[in-house]
Amino acid sequence: MVTKGRDAWQHPQVQLARGGQYVGAYIVSLLLTGGPLWLVVRHGGTPWRLMIIIVACAAALTLVQAYFWPRLDLSRTQRWMTAALVLFIPLVVMTVGLTAWMFATLYARTMIPVLLHAPAFGY
């Protein structure tokens, strides 16, 4: 049941740790959060363009952190974790996306008088 014959820290999952990659991911993460923040605070662009930048940075951050921090790749030790994550992403997108879609027009359709002319999202 246990990892015999060697020290536990020599397990392949422990040996995935890479100091340099951690630091690199850290710096990229700060850039990918600080950059959009700077744009937002300075109102650097239309709301639409800003939203695209925010979404793109969040997606990039996800990839960077998932790869360099928990080290989700297709190696033998990690592939089931990666597969599980990949299978869950559509579920997350569907939960949030389909809910947003159905509620987008719901207020207007349910005929609450003050809301008949309300925009779908935002203000």
Binding site: P90, L91, M94, L98, W101, M102, T105, L106, R109, T110
Partner: peptide, 18 residues
């Protein structure tokens, strides 16, 4: 199974596309 749940409340008033 993950993309069918709204059929429990078609009458809620979501749009025809939904």
């Amino acid at each position: 199974s993950w993309s069918v749940w709204l059929h429990h409340f078609f009458t809620m008033g979501a749009g025809p596309g939904v």
